[in-house]
Write a protein that binds this DNA or RNA. Structure first.
Lengths: 253, 253
DNA sequence: AGGCTCAAACAACATAGGTTATACGCAACG
DNA sequence: CGTTGCGTATAACCTATGTTGTTTGAGCCT
């Protein structure tokens, strides 16, 4: 079990929200200076954790709210006997802990895949945003509904797609999401997932995940080696999966 | 394909929100008279559809927002070749069409299982609520996150639980949800699902769903006959599934 | 009454995916 | 510089679940 200890608590040089690197992305909906200033006021800290850190503990009371500033993480639920389901992968700009604030206990766990940097928001007065900045409150709702869409797609995959389709859909989606965040450079994406993660996200066994990846590789739909995803045949993957990753401007809190 | 034609458009006697039968339930969080009046103003119609009606069409632009006042429905997604995944079941008090309003197109379909009555809200000025009634906006966010929790649980089921556990978990959850809405009387619940619906919700084939139901029946965990669920051994189901249906006060929009 | 349709039940067989086990390469570490 | 641990690969075998097809019974239309 990884501990909760910060790794490089670079609190000396926190990123000012106005200069947030995410806000320069074309896929991020711009905010007014006013709104950004409000967010800045709410932001209490910037914390960095190392890979494999348990950021939110399943079933624990936890009212902290974060935005993932950089790095990858995932949400998961597990069964008492150890079976685990990864619910979704979290990329920069994603909210962490909304459920923990809304409900008595966090209904799922969150774990980092890479070194992650989180923007932490005030524990108490978070809901001021609903009174003071309705547009930002709307954005939070939007992000929540957006997450729901990913879950719908995941449920469709796990429930009704074959192993081949599942793996192809997931890689296509992650490729697209990462692309919109500027994480793909020169046609290469650093994908910090082990095959076990992919298996847990898709309801497959690690062995079958491996077999399936081999097939897709042999069909030259992508190259996945040493944590690097490249030579992605997007058209081929779309044809195989009949899945079109959503492409739209998203808000950032 | 069922058409969109209203069945008993009892627009003559719409339910006033102050007298909404759902608001008398202990599981529903009360609102201030002010808030209820606002909701009443937003409500434009009350529409009744018959069983099997397609309420929201998958992939269609649809900005209508409803609350399910009475009856059962389900959200689903399907693949081009006809495979279908039921994402969640909708019971009275659940919001329909939030995603359709937030995104360009409805990412999923909604179909009624029974005769349903919907409260329809103004097409345009829905987002006034964020400016004028922050507390209600918060409630909408809560409902959205709540739906996400059901999806998380569903994903865990379909991805990692056995067929036996899946069916047991689903029936336990529906039993609990329906109970909180006062739909269980004298230990009997009218469950308007065919085995095919259960199969589509759990990522199983109809045949295997049938087999699994037989096993659970033989273990006397419940009686399910002619659309009636009764003699539910809640403790037994909890033991088998290690699942505790959430029990909490929820808002109503 | 006869003939639909639909949900449920059940049987026989087929297979996608799970399980267990072994091996290999590589980085971290004492 | 051996050892340990981890991720990946692959083989052999196994089983939970899918598929196809038939039967029964309850409504429902004509």
């Amino acid at each position: 079990m990884t501990t909760h200890r910060p790794w490089k608590p670079d609190a000396v040089h926190p990123t000012p929200c106005q200069a947030c690197p995410l806000r320069t992305l074309p896929s991020i909906k711009p905010n007014t200076p006013d709104e950004i200033e409000f967010i800045q006021r709410q932001k209490t800290a910037e914390i960095t954790y190392r890979p494999g850190t348990l950021l939110v503990q399943e079933g624990q009371r936890d009212e902290r709210l974060f935005t993932l500033l950089s790095g990858w993480a995932f949400r998961f639920k597990s069964l008492p006997d150890g079976r685990r389901q990864i619910l979704n992968f979290l990329l920069p700009g994603d909210l962490i802990g909304l459920q923990g604030k809304l409900f008595d206990e966090a209904p799922h766990g969150v774990e980092s895949l890479t070194t992650v940097t989180l923007c932490a928001f005030t524990r108490e007065r978070t809901w001021d945003v609903f009174r003071e900045y309705p547009a930002l409150a709307y954005d939070i709702t939007w992000l929540c509904a957006h997450e729901e869409r990913f879950l719908d797609e995941g449920l469709l995959s796990v429930g009704r797609r074959t192993a081949l389709e599942r793996v192809a859909t997931l890689l296509l989606l992650l490729w697209s999401r990462a692309g919109q965040l500027g994480l793909v450079s020169e046609g290469v994406l650093a994908l910090p997932l082990t095959q076990a993660h992919i298996a847990d996200a898709l309801g497959l066994s690690p062995v079958h995940t491996n077999r399936t990846l081999q097939v897709l590789r042999r069909r030259r739909l992508f190259v996945l080696k040493d944590g690097l995803l490249s030579a992605v045949d997007e058209a081929g993957l779309r044809r195989l999966t009949r899945f079109d990753p959503p492409q739209e401007r998203r808000p950032l809190y």
